[in-house]
Every structure is written in structure tokens, then in C-alpha cells.
């Protein structure tokens, strides 16, 4: 592999990693608060279509990304209202959100299918650092969104493990009744977590249509939202491990079109199953491990909370 090819691969790994990490981080926050959101795929599609549309209209990529995040937050809040406030089943509500998002994004974006992208991100110039060989060249080519994703990952880790809000959020996800007794507003906390999660999924969708594969097409999310759901489990609900998983899964995606040039006789389609199978394997290991100790999954995940019923 030539040096240029290697840099190209690494950039691709980071790009797909960014896409997956943003969405997975959002899902992690929601799940940590006890809300399983299977609407990531649909939320990404909504973020994707609005990000692209705003990019075409405004010409500003950052503005477009911001709007994609806002749309994601509002859209995911539908799931929040239905499953958290009204207490409907989280699985059904989340799936319906995905169906709604895929349908609505196709509906809204139909006139933009062949539009040229209107805005793009520039790589952040790291000055002399970019001279440091392959790594420097790769980092030199990273755009602001990847840096933002890393910053958000660190912020999420810090928020969850080092702040009062994170403590409350995790408590709500472990035992809503206990958190409620301690005076934590359960419904509000979960709504905020779901909205933040949606914002990140929306941002991920915007990143997809603005950066990774500029343009809009129905079905452009292609199941990436489900990988995000898988990543949270693969990373055992830990932001750092999820980052590792995002780079790993992103790397597998980046390798798919390159397998032939690398001389590997593996079907790229078969390889694209690996993230899902790995996630199942991790889930089985986690289940076996949790026989003698509490599970790493938030204990209250999937459970609606109403004070009268405790």
C-alpha cells in the first residue's frame, strides 16, 4: 500500500468513526438514563436531510450541522414524550421513530436527490504538526467535526463520571424510584438525555450528508444507526470503549472498498456483518459475566417510570 493509500484509509477510518461515534455517543447518553432509543437510524436520516438542505440553502456547513443537531433533538423528543412522559413501550416507540424518520426524510428530501452539495468543512490546519509523517498527514486532513466528536466524547465521559448531572442521569438509568426518592427529576432528566442523544444522532446524519458522502439519497443512512445502537453495547456503555469500537467498526467499513486493492480475498459484504456479529458476541460475554455481579447495562433500561406505581 502506498503512503497516499494509507493516509486515505486512515482518513476514511476516522470519517466513518466520527459518523458512528457521534450517533453512538448520543445513544449511550440516552441509554445511561434508562431510555433505549431504537430511533437512531430515523433520527440520523432526519439530521441528514435537514443538514444537507440547510447546507444547500445557506452555504454554511457549521450552521447546517447545528440545524441538523437541533432537528435531531426535536425529533428524538417525540420518542421522549411518548415513552418517557406517557410511559409507552420504548422498543415500539423507538422503532416507530425510525420508520417515521426514514419516511419523513425521504418525503422532505425528494426534490434534493440530485442536488450538488452547498457547503463543506475544511480541514483544521495544525501547522507544523501536520509534518509528522503519516499520522500528521492524517490528522492534518481531519475536519472540525471529527475534533468535535472527540471533544464531545471527553465531555460525555466527564459529565457522566464527574458531575452532579451525570450522577443523577446514571441514577435515573439504574433505578428511577431511588433517584426519585433522592429528589432527582426522573422525567426531566430522561427527556434531556433523549434530546441530547437525538442532537448527536442528527449531527451524525448531517455529517454523513455534508462530509462523508455529500448529497442526499433516500436510504443514505444504510443501517449506520443500528451500528450505533450496537456500538453502545459493544463498548459496554463506556464512552472510551465506544470510541474504540467506533474506530474499529469504522475501520471495517473503510476497508470494505479497499479489500481488493489490498489483495484480500474476502467478500466486503460478508465483512460488513462483522460489527453485528461482534456485538452479539460481546453481549453474550457480558451476560455470562453478569451472573455473579450486576450487569454493566443500566438496570432501568426499557422501564417506564411513574411515581404512583412504585
Amino acid at each position: 500500500m502506498s503512503r497516499a493509500e494509507l493516509v486515505g484509509l486512515l482518513i476514511s477510518v476516522i470519517s466513518f468513526g466520527t459518523l458512528l461515534y457521534l450517533a453512538a455517543l448520543g445513544e449511550l447518553i440516552a441509554e445511561k438514563s434508562g431510555v433505549l432509543n431504537l430511533g437512531v437510524e430515523g433520527t440520523m436520516a432526519m439530521g441528514g436531510v435537514t443538514g444537507f438542505l440547510i447546507g444547500v440553502q445557506s452555504g454554511s456547513a457549521w450552521f447546517a450541522l447545528l440545524i441538523a443537531a437541533l432537528v435531531g433533538a426535536v425529533f428524538a423528543s417525540i420518542h421522549g414524550i411518548v415513552s418517557v412522559v406517557m410511559g409507552a413501550d420504548q422498543v415500539v416507540s423507538g422503532l416507530a421513530l425510525t420508520i417515521l424518520g426514514l419516511g419523513l426524510s425521504a418525503f422532505l428530501g425528494k426534490d434534493y436527490v440530485s442536488s450538488a452539495p452547498g457547503a463543506k468543512f475544511n480541514a483544521i490546519n495544525l501547522g507544523p504538526l501536520s509534518d509528522l509523517g503519516v499520522v500528521g498527514e492524517t490528522l492534518f486532513s481531519m475536519n472540525g467535526v471529527s475534533w468535535l466528536a472527540i471533544a464531545l466524547g471527553i465531555a460525555t465521559w466527564f459529565m457522566l463520571s464527574r458531575t452532579r448531572m451525570g450522577l443523577s442521569l446514571r441514577a435515573v438509568g439504574e433505578s428511577a424510584a431511588t433517584a426519585d426518592a433522592a429528589g432527582t427529576p426522573v422525567v426531566l432528566t430522561r427527556m434531556i438525555a433523549v434530546a441530547i442523544g437525538g442532537a448527536m444522532a442528527g449531527m451524525s446524519g448531517g455529517y454523513l450528508t455534508l462530509v462523508l458522502a455529500p448529497g442526499w439519497n433516500e436510504g443514505t443512512t444504510a443501517g449506520r444507526g443500528w451500528i450505533a445502537v450496537a456500538l453502545v453495547i459493544f463498548g459496554a456503555w463506556k464512552p472510551g470503549r465506544v470510541l474504540f469500537g467506533a474506530l474499529l467498526f469504522g475501520g471495517l467499513i473503510a476497508l470494505e472498498p479497499r479489500l481488493q486493492t489490498l489483495g484480500l480475498d474476502v467478500s466486503p459484504i460478508l465483512m460488513s456483518m462483522v460489527p453485528y456479529l461482534l456485538t452479539i458476541a460481546v453481549l453474550i460475554v457480558l451476560s455470562i459475566r453478569s451472573r455473579n455481579r450486576p450487569s454493566v447495562a443500566p438496570a432501568a433500561i426499557g422501564l417506564a417510570f411513574r411515581r404512583e406505581e412504585r
Binding site: 445502537v229 460478508l270 456483518m273 453485528y276 456485538t279 452479539i280 453481549l283 453474550i284 451476560s287
Partner: peptide, 26 residues
Amino acid sequence: ARARLGVNEIITTLMLNEVAIRVVRY
């Protein structure tokens, strides 16, 4: 996995959707 190890069936069945989609594509 669910019967013997207690592995959550929501996630395993969800993951296998994506696997099946790729098997038929393959």
C-alpha cells in the same frame, strides 16, 4: 442465548436483521 444464558433477545434479534440483509446481498 436467551433461554440458556439470559442474553437480551431485543439486541440479538435486531443485530441478526442486519446480518440477514447482508447474507441475501452476498
